[in-house]
Design a protein around this nucleic acid. Structure first.
Length: 595
RNA sequence: GGGCCUGUAGUGUAGCGGUGAACAUGCCUGCCUGUCACGCAGGAGAUCGCGGGUUCGAAUCCCGUCAGGCCCGCCA
């Protein structure tokens, strides 16, 4: 490929081209000025090649090279020559050759850079983000986005092969009462009415199924106005999939094949399918998480029965209040952790709602030592030691509370130890399906049931009659795909009968009118021969993040938002003119007083 | 909404109550025909995030605030 008169890319120059005249375009990466000879590493998207300027080739070019600085844009013509044996640079792909420059034109200058471009990232992130166009020019970033592009292509190729059709859905849509906060867009035409940016194309893809597009997908942008995390951006990309007449087994198998293809692209790795599966209940009890990192063990141990008759008030109270007692064996930590460090663990546990953190050490004689031994009978101690497979030097940690707190606390401690004790194989990819989620959970604040997934999720067939009578006992035909402790995404079979959908809305405390107002079009659509259908949505940014080994979504999104959801490059969001307010029939409220 | 961490030349760091705020790199000038993170010599560059307080004296201690990051809540 050539463009603008360019004959080759810098990274393509090989020994086969020795003697050829080439014309290259790119950026001056580093310049080594030895007076009568100047070396410039010229780089473009493909890589770099060393160019040489000296008076024996062209006095004129040398004089121009004298003024070239970092990241100047150059148009270079010259001959490819073999380097002398002793001047070969093994660090670069083109290190055995160089281009002797006969002609050079400076296409554009560059100011001194705000940060070095050639090194590993040791620049603060705000500086990188406010100069993102330069940050993205760094080879490391170029590689990430090259891979991201290839993965996008692979997803499309795969789904096309499986007869899926990519169809776009609106970005300007309607606010829905459930779920995350919407990003709202005021309407100029409709006074005091708002569009919402989609949290996901959920309803539209179901309507595609009704429409008879039996297999839909979209690399879809989604928006949620909630607080950010390292793995959460307000604007993100999903691989959104929906299929009619396909059962959950078929969808699992297909999704597994697709993920395997992505691993093949990124790591030339053959992942084992089918992926392991675990129920939500099992995941919570064994790992204290609905997205367990199964790259390491250190599972939670159920102790409620063992300590059922215990005189230890903390255990006794928790069990009396319908809570549970579970333990976590921090292998070998009894020997190394000081009293202070164990107290710090209790502070850590408090973040997740623990009122305290009981602990015991296993000493050389395999007996338990610690402040709570006096409350535990010999039998209880023996049973605990046995259940937790305690060995000399171990630190046994206990959480006793309602089960949600116990899961959160021990789940968090497990991850903390997993990381700090290097129990995690960073090169491993552990996929896991988590299945059998509850359909709803009771929300104390609003005093009603809220869907765990979304209100269109279908119960498993044997629970269908219980949707209205005992919603809290219903298991959903819903599933999450987990990779290395990250929730890649989830999906479900959907309700395709209007009556069942109305039952569901009623269970969630919607009046007939509310349901009709918010979701009338869905009920209506389901009434016209909606096929059984289901689907899944996978967080594409997270996939890219994990496959590139990044620990942060910002690394794999070209122009990401900061933790406070602003863009340091454009300084969005920003204020708008009075005129714009007026056109939208809006007026600003007074800001909170700022003393 | 809450907790914790970090803000010092363009960049990365040191200094943590008392000398002219130090080092590296980048930048500028000069020298250098085989470098490759070239080298050598010289030079410029800092309202120590911002505001207040404590103190004879604050980059350093305290309070507030802003920005960035991580987490809890939140995220159907």
């Amino acid at each position: 490929m050539t463009d603008l008169g360019r004959s080759h890319f810098c990274g393509e120059i090989t020994e086969n081209m020795i003697g050829e005249n080439v014309r290259l375009k790119g950026w001056a990466r580093t310049r080594r000025d030895l007076g009568q000879v100047i070396f410039i590493d010229l780089g473009d998207q493909s890589g770099i090649v060393q160019t040489v300027f000296n008076p024996d080739i062209s006095e004129k070019a040398l004089n121009i090279a004298d003024n070239i600085r970092g990241e100047y844009v150059l148009d270079v013509t010259g001959k490819v020559v073999r380097r002398d044996e002793e001047t070969v640079n093994e660090k670069i792909a083109t290190g055995t050759v160089e281009v002797r420059v006969e002609e050079v034109t400076i296409l554009n200058k560059a100011k001194p850079l705000p940060f070095p471009m050639d090194e590993e990232i040791n620049v603060s992130e705000d500086v990188r983000l406010s100069n993102r166009f330069l940050d993205l020019r760094r080879p490391q970033m170029q590689a990430i986005f090259q891979l991201r592009h290839q993965l996008t292509q692979e997803v499309r190729t795969f789904l096309n092969e499986h007869l899926f059709m990519e169809i776009e859905t609106p970005m300007l849509t309607k606010s829905t009462p459930e779920g995350a906060r919407d990003y709202l867009v005021p309407s100029r035409v409709h006074e005091h009415e708002f569009f919402a940016l989609p949290q996901s194309p959920q309803l539209f893809k179901q309507l595609f199924m009704v429409a008879g597009f039996e297999r839909y997908y979209q690399i879809a942008r989604c928006f949620r106005d909630e607080d950010l995390r390292a793995d959460r951006q307000p604007e993100f990309t999903q691989i959104d999939i929906e299929a009619s007449f396909m059962n959950t087994e078929e969808l699992f198998a297909m999704t597994e094949k697709m993920m395997a293809r992505l691993l093949k692209v990124s790591h030339h790795l053959d992942v084992t399918t089918p992926f392991p599966r675990m129920t939500y209940h099992e995941a919570m009890h064994r790992y204290g998480s609905d997205k367990p990192d199964t790259r390491f063990g250190m599972e939670l141990v159920e102790l409620s029965d063992i300590v059922a008759g215990s005189e230890f008030q903390v255990f006794k109270k928790a069990l009396a209040n319908n809570g549970i007692v579970k333990g976590l064996n921090a292998k070998g930590q009894g020997d190394v952790m000081s009293r202070k460090e164990i107290d710090d663990l209790a502070d850590f546990a408090a973040i997740y709602g623990a009122k305290g953190l009981a602990w015991l050490k296993v000493d050389e004689e395999k007996t338990l030592k610690g402040p709570i031994t006096k409350f535990l009978s010999e039998d209880e101690q023996a049973n605990i030691l046995n259940a937790m497979a305690g060995e000399s030097g171990d630190l046994l940690l206990f959480a006793a509370d309602v089960q949600e707190v116990v899961f959160d606390v021990l789940g968090a401690l497990r991850l903390k130890f997993g990381k700090e004790l290097n129990l995690i194989d960073e090169d491993a990819f552990h996929f896991l399906w988590v299945t059998d989620f509850p359909l709803v959970e009771y929300d104390k604040d609003s005093g009603r049931y809220v869907p765990l997934h979304h209100p269109f999720t279908r119960p498993i067939e044997e629970d269908v009659d219980k949707v209205e009578t005992a919603p809290e006992d219903v298991t959903a035909n819903a599933y999450d795909l987990v990779l290395n402790g990250y929730e890649l995404g989830g999906g479900s079979r959907r309700i395709h009968e209007p009556e069942l959908q109305m039952q569901m809305f009623r269970s969630l405390g919607f009046s007939e009118e509310e349901a009709k107002e918010k979701f009338g079009f869905l009920i209506d659509a389901l009434s016209y021969g909606a096929p059984p259908h289901g689907g899944i949505a996978l967080g594409f940014d997270r996939i890219v993040m994990i496959l590139t080994g990044a620990d942060n979504l910002r690394e794999v999104i070209a122009f990401p938002k900061t933790a406070s959801a602003s863009c340091l490059l454009t300084e969005a969001p920003g204020t708008v003119s009075e005129e714009q307010w007026k056109e939208l029939h809006l007026s600003p409220r007074k800001k909170k007083a700022n003393p």
